[in-house]
Design a binder for these strands. Structure first.
Lengths: 225, 225
DNA sequence: TCTGGCGCCCTTCCATACAAGAATGGCATT
DNA sequence: AATGCCATTCTTGTATGGAAGGGCGCCAGA
């Protein structure tokens, strides 16, 4: 925990504490199982306990913290079941999305997606994992936008944080080459207006995450329930 | 707002306030657009502002309240876009569920579902709308359980509250007969182990909600954005 | 040595006081 | 009559002190 002096903006203190803590949790600066307390964090950021408490409540609702009344507050360990179910939800939605996109194809769609893949290849060549994953997220978000349900993507953002923690642990591991190849298959199916092929490619793409999860669990057993 | 003296249990005051307020909102005792304040609710329940404030935060995260800093807190109006997107998510997941259930059929599945439909018919004959909708929810939840993703159902419960408010407004309107007939089609497809037919039936079942939504918007325009 | 009880310390939870922004209505000025 | 300013009074946001409860270790007794 580096974390000194959250930069002051016009937002409320509570909001800034939420952002700071969430970032620390996703980047594993705060590890699953770590015990924190209101006064602890309050002292660390030089604020009172009240806004910290409110931050705890919000993060607990997002599934990142576990408040044990009168006992303590801990960074929630990652639940393999929760991760799989979150992925089930994501897969359900993404399959529906890719069907729509492939079902009503436009030249724009394929173009935009192709360009994104090119960027990803550049990031991969430069070994810039962070940027690669940012572009990966953008790829999927773009599909949602093309399907006209970008707003729905925001709704599942909460669940996605569970997946993000796992992904952060696999930053150096995941094979970017393979992901790119899979993305190409998806775009290809979209260009051909073949919903079934698109669905198959998307399922394969998402299924690979299962392998990564299992490896990550054995690499960091303490971080999981 | 009837609402006196929330019954005391061992839970925290904040939790009880959350439950009470959420119930008031979903049952339209608190109407979309109503302005409430921390001290208002605090006085009404005879507690201090603090737990009420925490309840507001939690309900705001669930999309039921809108906290306008330093200004006021209002019961959020229902967003037609949000409702449609929530339904999109639900439809995506339910289609995936029904495919799985129909894909790996069991005698139990059809039996349990058939029994639930019988109960629904009884409730419909008795004109018990509340019970009918409770059974309706149980029907879909059972499908999730049969697909082995009951936990995922919990994850979308938050989004479902948006739909619940609309559904409450349509309590006397919705044609229970039709819903029952659609449920029968679904079970039939499951019994025949026909995923495609099951999917079609499920989509039709969920699509009918769109009509209800449009009618509800014109019936209660003030409750929507 | 083992076991049960008691007290201390830690936590979250609640209450209260104060601070600061925002809206509204009255009043003065033009 | 219209308009701009200012004070009053709401609201939510923050700080702080104490209350209530759970965990843990020391200590006494068997």
């Amino acid at each position: 925990m580096a974390a000194a002096a959250l930069e002051h903006s016009k937002e409320t203190i509570a909001s800034r504490v939420v952002d700071a803590l969430r970032d620390d949790i996703i980047t594993m600066a705060l590890k699953p199982g770590d015990v924190i307390s209101e006064s602890d964090i309050a002292g660390r950021y030089g604020v009172s306990r009240q806004p910290v408490r409110e931050a705890f409540i919000r993060l607990a609702q997002q599934g990142l913290l576990l408040i044990r009344p009168k006992r303590a507050t801990v960074v929630k360990k990652i639940s393999p079941i929760g991760v799989r179910q979150s992925r089930f939800i994501r897969e359900s939605i993404e399959v529906e999305i890719i069907r729509r996109v492939a079902g009503q194809p436009s030249d724009d769609a394929a173009d935009v997606l192709t360009r994104l893949i090119a960027d990803q290849e550049a990031a991969s060549d430069a070994n810039d994992s962070r940027r690669f994953h940012t572009l990966d997220e953008l790829f999927h978000r773009t599909l949602a936008r093309l399907a006209g349900v970008e707003y729905a993507w925001q709704l599942i953002d909460d669940h996605k944080m569970q997946l993000d923690r796992v992904r952060y642990l696999t930053l150096g591991v995941s094979s970017t080459q393979r992901a790119i190849a899979e993305h190409k298959q998806i775009v290809e199916a979209v260009a051909k207006a073949d919903p079934t092929a698109a669905e198959t490619a998307m399922r394969a793409h998402l299924a690979r995450a299962e392998l990564l999860l299992n490896q990550t669990i054995s690499d960091f057993p303490d971080y999981f329930e």
